[in-house]
Design a protein around this nucleic acid. Structure first.
Length: 441
RNA sequence: CGGGGUGUGGCGCAGUCUGGUAGCGCAUCUGCUUUGGGAGCAGAGGGUCGUUGGUUCGAAUCCAGCCGCCCCGACCA
């Protein structure tokens, strides 16, 4: 992408309304624009990141056998009256009427709808187990939206739902999601800690939330360092083997982990040796629930068993705040100059900086490199604007591509370019070919 | 929902107390000079001062209502 042809409205000053760092940086980097309280447009740069995050979430859901669907944002009130949540949900639910004065709502979540979908077609034990998910915009009319996309009213969420014949099988579905969640966050360069959680208004008896560590996080967390050291991406477990999966879950839930509400300092100190005690702040980026027949009974989702009985399907639901993650990742990874994207979610892997636009030598090297980067499949943003070096450095640091290739007149004469790693500022001087080879590797 | 703040060109702000017809920095456009960390000079364009009503010869400024947005708390992906 050429910056000269892109829509990248970076800001030099912090917008007054943005308090926390991710909100400030997202606005300054031209990722989002606020439309009203808690509602944002995603501009080209931000949208690229959102899509990257979404894709990782999608791949990990697919990997555990969940099927992607897409349900509407607008739902009928009748469905919610059946579950009783039309009244229970309160003012957080945005209620609307269509032209026939039928009660509708902008979905805050989709348990009712998907249960209804499942119930219509699934009739026997042969139809379970089943897992489906969608990635769709939700609306929750928060009392106080804040912190940019971290607590928006309209937000993008992945919500998955599992359907099983019995609780044991349901537990296995829950466990697979648990593993998928940890893998999802790990792939984004995040350390996520699973915490036993309250089930809240969704109900049920088994629930975990996933918290990523960030100094600016909202909640305090205490846990055993062992949880941070555990490398799940290397844990090669057969997802079909219930006992093996349960073993892994037991291993991941055994160490101490708690947020403010449940934290018990004495228990923490007796359970965790001093050198392994972690007390930090975090951001909730996912929440999973197993709630059995809470929705299947009222919405009439029953399955015939082999021996002719009729049982309510056992369900779980699993949410990931996709748009929130964009902010959360920035909270976890930035410096004074701007965002430092983990490679997996970076809008561009490399920023090609031409320090002397219009200089024949610099232009030639940059154009050649840009073409070759594209050919090699390296997502690059080429700052080809007629701007001073300082402006380009600042903007490219701000938008946070993991790598910068800096091409200046002196280097061009000597046959070298500079490769700078955004995270730590480390620079290498090398030939353009070598830089290309390193980035394509 | 309680408490506190705020609204003035795209962004950041001054002006409001003490009423006299809108200003600064950055950004934008033009020209020249510059060119490895947000350049210099010269010129130009851009604002119903959130909104409605009131007071007044005259309102960004005073008064009243409404709206938007932000922060703190209680509540949440």
């Amino acid at each position: 992408m050429r910056v000269s042809e892109y829509f990248l409205p970076t800001l030099r000053n912090d917008p007054a309304e943005a308090e926390i760092v991710s909100h400030r940086l997202m606005l300054r980097a031209g990722m989002i624009r606020q439309e009203s309280a808690g509602i944002y447009s995603w501009l080209p740069l931000g949208f690229r990141v959102l899509k990257k995050i979404e894709q990782i979430v999608r791949e990990e859901q697919d990997r555990i056998g969940a099927h992607e669907i897409l349900m509407p944002t607008i739902q009928s009130a009748d469905l919610w009256r059946k579950s009783g949540r039309y009244d229970d949900y309160g003012k957080e639910m945005l209620r609307i009427q269509d032209r026939h004065e039928r009660d509708m709502l902008f979905g805050p979540t989709n348990e009712e709808m998907i249960t209804d979908i499942f119930a219509e077609h699934a009739k026997s034990y042969k139809d379970a187990p089943l897992a489906m998910y969608h990635i769709q915009w939700k609306f929750r009319d928060e009392v106080r939206p804040r912190y940019g996309v971290m607590r928006g009213r309209e937000f993008l969420m992945k919500d998955a739902y599992t359907f099983d014949l019995d609780a044991e099988s349901g537990r296995h579905a829950y466990n697979k999601q648990f593993i998928a969640y940890l893998r999802t966050y790990a792939r984004m360069g995040l350390t996520a800690i699973p915490m036993a959680a309250d089930t809240g208004p969704i109900g049920g008896d088994l629930s975990h939330e996933f918290i990523i560590l960030a100094a600016t996080g909202e909640s305090k967390v205490w846990c055993d360092q062992a949880l941070l050291d555990f490398d799940l991406t290397n844990a090669d477990v057969d997802l079909g083997d219930r006992a093996a999966v349960q073993g892994l879950i037991d291993q991941l839930t055994a160490p101490y982990a708690a947020t403010d509400e449940q934290h018990d300092q004495d228990a923490f100190e007796s359970a965790v040796p001093e050198e392994r005690r972690v007390a930090e702040k975090g951001i909730e980026v996912g929440h999973i629930f197993f709630f059995g027949d809470k929705y299947s009974k009222p919405l009439d989702a029953y399955l015939d068993t082999k021996d002719g009985a009729r049982v309510p399907v056992q369900m779980g639901s699993y949410g990931v705040g996709v748009s929130r993650l964009a902010g959360a990742i920035i909270e976890a990874s930035h410096d004074e100059a701007g965002i430092i994207w983990p490679e997996a979610v970076a809008p561009f892997k490399a920023a090609l900086i031409n320090l002397r636009q219009g200089d024949d030598g610099c232009d030639a090297v940059c154009e050649d490199l840009y073409t070759k980067l594209q050919a090699a499949g390296v997502e690059a943003i080429y700052d080809d604007r007629d701007e001073r070096a300082g402006v380009k450095f600042s903007d490219m640091d701000l938008i946070g591509a993991p790598w910068q290739i800096i091409v200046g007149p002196k280097g061009v004469k000597a046959g070298i370019v500079e490769l700078k790693r955004r995270a730590d500022g480390e620079r290498d001087e090398l030939s353009a070919e070598a830089a290309l080879a390193k980035l394509s590797a």
